[in-house]
Structure formats: C-alpha cells, structure tokens
Deep mutational scan, measured.
Amino acid sequence: GTVHVGDKTYHFPTPDAAKKFAQEIAKKLNLQVTVKNGTWQVH
C-alpha cells in the first residue's frame, strides 16, 4: 500500500499496514484521510 502525507510518500508491504499508518498519522496530526485506488492520502 502507498500513503501520501503532504509531499512525502510511504510504501507498505500490505494494504492493511498502509491503512493503519494513514489512520494513525491522521489522528495524530488531526487531518483527514481519503483513499483512492488503494492509495491513501492524509491531508
């Protein structure tokens, strides 16, 4: 899975790992999470 946070991109071996990371970052930074075609965006 891929997660975009601002101008950074993180790659994870599984979709679940990407989802978990995106949700944790969003919670920590009080941001929104959207997913499109398996790519997570934190914004």
Rank of each mutant, 00 (worst) to 15 (best):
G1E: 06
G1I: 07
G1K: 11
T2W: 12
T2N: 06
T2D: 06
T2L: 09
V3T: 02
H4S: 08
H4T: 11
H4Q: 14
H4E: 10
V5F: 14
V5S: 02
G6S: 04
G6P: 01
G6C: 14
G6T: 03
G6R: 06
D7S: 14
D7F: 11
D7Y: 12
D7H: 14
D7A: 12
D7P: 11
K8W: 11
K8Q: 10
T9Q: 08
T9G: 03
Y10V: 04
Y10T: 02
H11E: 06
P13S: 12
P13H: 09
P13Q: 11
P13T: 12
P13G: 08
P13E: 11
T14Q: 04
P15M: 13
P15C: 13
P15H: 13
P15Q: 15
P15V: 11
P15S: 13
D16I: 08
A17N: 04
A17D: 08
A18D: 00
A18I: 03
K19H: 10
K19M: 13
K19A: 14
K19G: 08
K20Q: 12
A22P: 00
A22G: 02
A22L: 03
Q23G: 06
Q23D: 10
Q23Y: 15
E24M: 14
E24A: 14
E24P: 00
E24R: 13
I25E: 04
I25K: 02
A26M: 04
A26S: 06
A26F: 03
K27E: 11
K27V: 08
K28H: 10
K28T: 07
K28S: 08
L29Y: 15
L29T: 05
L29S: 05
L29K: 05
L29A: 06
L29I: 03
N30D: 08
N30M: 06
L31R: 06
L31A: 15
Q32F: 09
Q32L: 12
Q32A: 11
V33P: 04
T34K: 05
T34A: 06
V35D: 07
V35S: 09
K36L: 13
K36V: 15
K36E: 12
K36P: 01
N37C: 07
N37G: 09
N37M: 04
N37Y: 04
N37L: 05
T39F: 13
T39G: 11
W40K: 02
W40R: 03
W40A: 04
Q41A: 06
Q41Y: 15
Q41S: 09
Q41F: 15
Q41I: 15
V42S: 02
V42E: 03
H43K: 08
